[in-house]
Design a protein around this nucleic acid. Structure first.
Lengths: 197, 197, 197, 197
DNA sequence: AAGTAACCGAGACGGTACGTCACGTCTTTGA
DNA sequence: TCAAAGACGTGACGTACCGTCTCGGTTACTT
C-alpha cells in the first residue's frame, strides 16, 4: 500500500512538464518563459525554480518525461538493415513535435550552458550511443563489421551526418538520406579494391 | 577631391561588428545585448537595428568580417591527407575564440530563427562545402575516390562527425580524432574483403 | 510687380502650419511630433527647426494663421449686451476645432515654456484684452460702468471665469453660463442696497 | 506579533511620491521621466506603472500627499475679509514650490488627458470649491451676500481671475491683486446706484 | 551663361525615454 | 508547512522622437 507519500509534489512536477511541452508547441520552446509556464500550469514560479535550476534543465526533464517509444535495435543478421531501421525510427521522432523542436531547443541551450550540455549528453545522447555501440559490438563479433574499428568513433560517424542534417542544413531527413549515409559509411569512400583490380 | 566619401556609415558598421566580437569574447555571445553593444560602440541602438534585423544577423556578419584565413584545400596526390590537413585548420579555428564561440552561438540562434539558419547555411556552410566538393570531385576524377559517390553526401559525412563533436559532445577535436574519422570514412565500416576471404 | 521674392519659403511655411493644424486635429496637438509634421508636409525636419524654435512657437503661429473672424465688439448703448455678444463669439470659437484644442495645447505648453507663455500672451491674449479694455473704457466714459474701476482688473474678471471653465472644469461654456457670469459681475455679489433698504 | 505588516507597499508608494516632488523641483515637473523617478527612488519602473496609470496621476497623488495646511475659511462677520484671507493663503501656496509648479504641471497635463482633468477637478478643485460654497452659503444666510446668487457661479467668479493670473499672465498674484478682485466682485461693475442718482 | 551660394528633402546619427517583458528573489496569505 | 500569487529591483527589449548633422540635388541670384 503506497501511502501517497509526497504525492502532491509529483503531481505538480508532471503538470509543469506537461505544460512546458504544451506551451512550447504553441509558442516555440525558445520563447518559453518560466513566468508563462507557471501561469498556465497554475503554479507559483517558486515551485518551478525549486525543481529546476534553469530552463534547459526543465526542457530536458520534459523531453525525457515524454512517452518514450524506447526504441531499441533489432539483432538480425543484417547490421546495416538494423541500423537503418533504428535510424528511421529515431529520425521520425525528431522529425515532428514535440520531440524534434524540444531536442533542437535543448541543443541550442547546450551551446551556452555547459550544465545543460553535460546533462543532455549524459541522459539523452549516451543512452542512445550505448545501444548503438552494443549493437555494433555484436556485429563486430559476428564479423559483419570491420574488426579494427573503434566503436565510439563508429557512433560519431553514424550520428554525425544525421545531426548535421538536423541542426545545420535543417532539411528533412528522409529514409533515402539515411540509406545513403549508412550505405556510404559501410562501403567507405575509397575506390573499391575489387573495382580497381 | 572628396576624401572619405560616404564613409561614415561603413565606419560605424565595422565598429559595431568589432565591438560585437570584442564584447562577445568578454561576456559570451549568448549574453550579448544590443543595448550593451550600442553602448560600448558609442552608437545609438537604432543604428544597429537599422543594419541588422536580429542578433543572429549581426553575429553572422561579425563572424564573416573576421580576418578570414581563407583556407583552401591542397591538391596533392593524397586526398585523404589533403582533407585531413584542411580539417586540422578548420578545427583549429573552431577550437578557440573568437570564431569557435561565435559559430556555436550562431548555430544556437539558427535553432530558433529560420532566417539565421538560412543565412548561416548560405554564407558559412555552403562556401565551405563548395570547396570540399570541388576537392572531392578532383579526387574522384583521378580515381582516388569511389566513383559512385554523391558528393553532397560526402560533405555531410565528412562534416557531420566533426560538428557532432563540436556541438554535442563538446570535447576538443584533436588531430587524432580527425585522423580517425577520415580514416574510417575512407575505409568503410564493412569488414575488409581481404578479411572475408 | 512683386517678383516672387523668396516665394518658396513662404509656401513652405504655410504648408507646415496647415499640416500642423490638420495633423493636430487628427491625432491631438499634444501628440504632434515635428517628425510627423515634416513627414506629412513633405518637408525636411530642418526646414521646420529653421523657422520655429519649439513646438509651442509652431502651434502659436499655426493658430494665428487660421482665418481669424477678427471678432470685435459692438458699441451699442448696452455694454453688458455687447460684452455678452462678444463672449458668445469667442466661446464659440474655443468650443470647437481647430481653435479650441489648439489654444488648450498652447496654454498647456505655456505652463512649462516661459517663451511660449510670453509670446502667447503678447500675440493672443493682449490683443483680445486690448479690445475689451477699449470697449470698457468707452462704457466708462458713457457712465455705463463704475468709474473707479481698473480696466485691466475688469479684463481679468471678465476673462477669468471663462478660462476657468475652459481649462479647469472643462465643461461646455453655454450662453447661459456667459449670461450668468456677466450678470453677476455687473451686479456684484453684495446684497443689493435697494433690496436691503 | 508581526510588525510592519503590509508595510512594504505603502513605503514605496510614499518614497516614489516624495522623489517625484523632489526631482520635480530640481529639473521641473514637465521634464520628469518615469525612468528618472524610478532610478532616484531606487525602484523598478514597473513598481510605478503598477500604481499610476500616467504621469499625471502620479503628479496628482504627489501633490495631494504633501503636507496639506488644510486651509479653511474663517467665519467672521466680514465675508469679504474671510474670502480675502483664504485667498491669501491659497495664493501663497501656489506662489512657490513645490505646490505651485506642481499644480501648473497638473493643469497642463489636464489639457490633454481627460482622466487627469477629471481626477484633478474631483480631488483638488471640488474640495476647495466645497469650502468656498459653504462659506458663501453661510454669508448668504446672514444677508452678507446677494441672496439670488448661484453659488457654483460665485465659485467660478472668485477662482477664475486668480487662475487667469496664475496660468495665463503668469504674473505673481499679490495681496493687492486679491483685494482688487474681491473688491470688484462684491461691488459689481455697474455704476453705483448712488452715483446714478 | 556659368558660377555660387542658399535652401531643401531625406534621413542617418547619438541620445533619452517610452511602456513591456521576463528574470530570479522576496513577501504575504490562504489551505 | 507549503504553495499560489504576485510584488519587487534589474536589465533588456524594440520603438518613437528629440535636435543635430551630413548628403546630394535643385533653385534663384550674382557676376
Amino acid at each position: 500500500m503506497t501511502s501517497t507519500p509526497r504525492r502532491r509534489g509529483a503531481d505538480r512536477t508532471e503538470a509543469i512538464m506537461r505544460t512546458t511541452v504544451e506551451l512550447g508547441q504553441e509558442i516555440g520552446y525558445a520563447k518559453l518563459s518560466i513566468e508563462a509556464i507557471a501561469n498556465r500550469a497554475g503554479v507559483g514560479k517558486h515551485t518551478i525554480y525549486r525543481r529546476w535550476s534553469s530552463k534547459g534543465a526543465l526542457l530536458l526533464d520534459s523531453l525525457l518525461s515524454l512517452d518514450d517509444p524506447d526504441l531499441d535495435f533489432s539483432y538480425t543478421d543484417d547490421v546495416l538493415a538494423d541500423l537503418r531501421e533504428q535510424a528511421y525510427a529515431a529520425v521520425e521522432l525528431l522529425a515532428r513535435p514535440p520531440v524534434g523542436p524540444l531536442v533542437q531547443a535543448l541543443i541550442a541551450e547546450a551551446q551556452h550552458d555547459p550544465r545543460v550540455a553535460a546533462e543532455f549528453k549524459e541522459r539523452f545522447i549516451t543512452p542512445m550511443a550505448g545501444k548503438l555501440v552494443k549493437r555494433l559490438k555484436a556485429a563486430q563479433e559476428e564479423g559483419h563489421l570491420s574488426p579494427d574499428f573503434d566503436l565510439d568513433l563508429a557512433m560519431a560517424i553514424c550520428s554525425g551526418p544525421l545531426y548535421f542534417q538536423f541542426l545545420i542544413t535543417q532539411e528533412p531527413i528522409t529514409r533515402e538520406y539515411v540509406n545513403d549515409v549508412f550505405g556510404a559509411l559501410f562501403a567507405g569512400m575509397s575506390p573499391r579494391p575489387a573495382a580497381t583490380r
